[in-house]
Design a protein around this nucleic acid. Structure first.
Lengths: 222, 222
DNA sequence: ACACCAAAAATTGTCGACAAAAAGACTTGT
DNA sequence: ACAAGTCTTTTTGTCGACAATTTTTGGTGT
């Protein structure tokens, strides 16, 4: 499988990945200030390395930086999450459309196989599907778009932010069986090379997730 | 008007903007290697500053970097440009949808006024419309989406790349009068708060541009 | 007590130097 | 003449120190 994962080579790479993980997982709290000197001692690297890592985190929209002042981890908000899902609807809808056009027959076969293995999991009542399975499914379609920018925007940017919300606001979210059906129909459309339908179904699928999340959020807040 | 333009404050900022401009305008050729030491003498700043600038250029997908090897300006290709337009179709379509939902009545009025001033230009046969006017129109709608990520992706990323193609492959492109009509219909849909239609018309508008460009490119190559 | 200004402390921005890795040049052997 | 390996050179990666800016602290006057 052609996976999309750059192995870290330089220490700045490793520090960037580590920092991103620590922020996404909540080890470093949302909204917290990132002191360069403090982080450099914590992670045992020079300030230059920390600076490079922070710069890259800024490009991902995981931290916000003000000149001569410093960087803060972004604050999580309901509207922020909904904005992310608007992007996802747009970009992943297009990804599904392009996947229907550009995926090889072999890749589609693999996608169908993945779906079947998920079906087994769902039938056995495993909750595996919820997180990794869902992500894997979407990953394949995004990769199937064969559009470099699309892939990078979603994998390097949006997805880490989405995960940050998922982890820190605790949205594992069910929707397992219904989501499975939606996935199935999307794959079918892709297999039929029906670009319009693939895009439409994907957009709906994400809109549903979005509404599901919004309901949860408002029920928590009330 | 709430414009989207960060004024450079640190020298790294300025160097980044300067470098980006020089690449977009072709002063530094597409595909060229970016030597850190060379650039630091050319621009009269330290290597650390150059490195930060290059890192930010990498986030914009304007340069590609390989660890321990160096950075190169991206190569321009037909498929690369078409891929950019796929993203634009998706993202700006969503922007138009969100603009129809989120723009204030005042902003919409300003947008209509802008359109009228463009109409004057077109009637007088001015070619002003082609570049700045078109960009301004799209900018307002993107800003009108009120989606931070959407705005950043297009303004900080895609648009500079698109301009790089325009400048270096010399695509000023006519389509003036037809594009004007398309713009008019889009504004009308936004004014009517018709989200579906606004998105659809914007997507068509960009698809037309895309096809126009593709025809030009293939006619050049043949 | 509060507002305002000035000095001190802390933090970010920039720089030059050293370490590590890659690219190029040269030698050697077949 | 060509290939492989080694040494040299060049380039990138990392580090600590200095400069510039912001924040905090402390004092002064009203």
């Amino acid at each position: 499988m052609t996976r999309y994962s750059q192995t870290p080579v330089t220490t700045a790479d490793k520090t960037f990945y580590q920092l991103r993980q620590d922020i996404v997982e909540g080890v470093i709290a949302a909204g917290a200030k990132l002191s360069e000197t403090e982080l450099s001692t914590t992670y045992g690297v020079s300030r230059a390395v920390i600076r490079e890592a922070i710069n890259r985190l800024e490009s991902c929209h995981i931290v916000e930086r003000r000149a001569n002042v410093g960087a803060r981890v972004v604050a999580l908000s309901e509207e922020g999450l909904l904005a992310l899902y608007e992007i996802r609807e747009s970009l992943e809808g297009m990804a599904a459309r392009l996947a229907a056009k550009n995926m090889s027959d072999e890749e589609i076969a693999e996608l169908e196989a993945l779906l079947i293995s998920h079906f087994q999991d769902v039938k056995q009542g495993e909750s595996y599907y919820q997180e990794a399975g869902d992500v894997d499914f979407h990953y394949r379609i995004i990769l199937g778009s064969k559009n470099k920018h699309l892939i990078s925007m979603l994998f390097d940017g949006i997805y880490h932010l989405v995960r940050m919300y998922r982890v820190q606001l605790g949205m594992a979210g069910p929707r397992v069986t219904t989501a499975y059906d939606e996935h199935r129909h999307i794959v079918q459309a892709i297999a039929n090379r029906d670009q319009e339908l693939a895009e439409m179904l994907m957009r709906r699928h994400i809109t549903y997730s979005r509404n599901n999340i919004r309901n949860k959020l408002s029920s928590i807040q009330s």
